Simulated scan of single mutants.
Amino acid sequence: MNVSTHEPRWRRLLDGGHTWGSLAVSPTRYGVTRYRLVVFPPGMSADDRMLLRVWRSWPVWGMTLFLLLEILLVPAIGASSALATSTAVFLGTGAALAAMTGATRGDVRTLSAVRMAGVDGTALAEGFAELCALVNDLAGADCERVDGEIDAVEHELLVWRVYDRMAADTHART
């Protein structure tokens, strides 16, 4: 099997659907929906973006790896040795990723909003409206890039504007 034919799939999986970051929508109980917009620093390389995405998902896949190692190692080397090995792998991968993403991890901008059914608070509505405006700007930039209306430099400029607006909003709220 030729490994290079599968590389673009793995890169796409690790790099995500958008070069600018991600939007997570989480409906929860009792009519509460959480929205989380994550924007990476524009101009970041694909490799740095992938490392940041792997770092951000480390608690999930790291614990999965820990449990898998426990299942496989307990019968082979015993409970205490398996626990020590699994813990070392879990913490070691986390530490390695923390070291590799240290330079860029602090530059990631995040904006969260919560909507609750039946609650029309002004602060909640303003936060959600701002998040929607930023997402619309990013989605519009992606669509224009795909349609060939703008090139990569103009797309990055639009992402910079959103990135800078997120910093201004953070300072305005504190």
Rank of each mutant, 00 (worst) to 15 (best):
N2S: 10
T5H: 08
T5I: 14
H6C: 13
P8M: 13
P8Q: 05
R9K: 11
R12A: 09
L13I: 10
L14P: 03
L14V: 13
L14D: 10
G16Y: 00
H18W: 00
W20H: 06
S22Y: 13
L23R: 09
A24Q: 10
A24H: 13
V25A: 15
S26W: 10
Y30W: 15
G31K: 00
T33I: 09
L37Y: 08
V39G: 04
F40A: 07
D47G: 10
R49F: 13
W55R: 13
W55A: 10
P59T: 05
G62I: 02
L65F: 02
L67I: 04
L67R: 00
L68Q: 03
L68F: 06
L69P: 01
L72V: 13
P75K: 07
P75I: 12
A76L: 13
I77R: 10
A79N: 05
S81T: 14
A82H: 02
A82L: 02
L83S: 09
A84I: 09
A84M: 08
T85K: 03
T85A: 07
S86N: 00
S86K: 00
S86Q: 00
T87H: 01
V89T: 00
V89P: 00
F90P: 01
L91Q: 02
G92V: 01
G92R: 03
G94Y: 01
A96C: 08
A96I: 11
A99H: 12
M100A: 12
A103G: 11
T104Q: 06
R105I: 15
V108T: 03
R109W: 09
R109I: 05
S112P: 07
A117E: 14
G118D: 01
V119H: 15
D120K: 14
G121R: 05
A123E: 11
A123F: 14
L124A: 14
L124T: 09
A125V: 13
A125M: 10
E126T: 14
E126D: 13
F128V: 05
F128G: 01
E130I: 07
C132I: 05
A133E: 10
A133F: 12
L134Y: 06
L134R: 07
V135A: 08
N136I: 11
L138Y: 02
L138E: 02
A139K: 04
G140W: 01
G140C: 01
A141C: 03
D142P: 00
R145Y: 09
V146P: 05
V146E: 14
E149Y: 14
I150H: 03
D151E: 06
A152F: 04
V153L: 05
E154M: 03
L157P: 00
R161N: 11
Y163W: 14
D164V: 11
A167V: 01
A168R: 04
D169S: 15
D169Y: 06
D169M: 15
D169W: 12
H171F: 15
H171N: 13
H171E: 06
A172C: 15
R173A: 08
T174H: 09
